[in-house]
Amino acid sequence: MASIDLEAVSLAYPIYDANGRSLKNALLRTVGGRMTETHGRVDVQALSDISLKLRDGDRLALVGRNGAGKTTLLKVLAGVYEPPIGRVRISGSVSSLTDVTMGMDIDATGYENILMRCVFLGMTYAQAKAIIPDIEEFTELGPYLSLPIRTYSTGMLVRLGFATSTASRPQILIMDEMIGAGDMAFAEKAQARIGEYVADAHIMVLASHNNAILRQFCNKGILLAKGRIEVAGDIETVLAHYERTGN
């Protein structure tokens, strides 16, 4: 069983500009007027007092305007950010599907990239090798898999990234916008695969601006505004509120 619990999580991003990153300015911080005020560091309150509880079967939609804190919350849920205030407990394997081409080496062959990505997803070398036929079949890349991926077209790259990223089945799935791309024939295949992939996850959290997709995949929702939860509840209530108050 997978679960996610957040309790009163607050997170302020320290934004370091070029001055804030400089050691010289940190040492000479007392000199000059404007720098003293800002210290070259601006704190952006990205999340305030977020509490939520997710259990098996929950499909959570995150909605809100740009800058409302959706991506930051996703990163907390994925375990990338450890918030300084509040408590976080995540149990279950987490996969964050934000960038399907993450960690791909353009000079490595398709096969090497598959192996690399699968190991990243937590597989053994043997498990990774066992998954190759599935990816061969799904991507239809054939002999191209033996070539360095720098020779691939964008569409081919997406096919490979998509297939390898969805090769393992995590218990908790975190997505920033629904993935899926490629030519028409592939889009259908991809849709079928993502449907399975999502169905297999115990918990899914999806941030999106596409309300139709959210209605299709999610059963609950959270409306974020300025880093706070404004409305939480079932997907219809939240989306209705969001659509009423205007995007």
Partner: peptide, 27 residues
């Protein structure tokens, strides 16, 4: 709590309090 409860709890029941976050050393 029912497994599908999601709302931000205004008060947290005893059985639901999370363990204290691990200290920096443990982490």
């Amino acid at each position: 709590t029912p497994s599908n409860s999601l709302a931000a709890p205004t008060h947290v029941e005893e059985s639901d309090t999370l363990d204290p976050p691990p200290g920096r050393i443990t982490a």
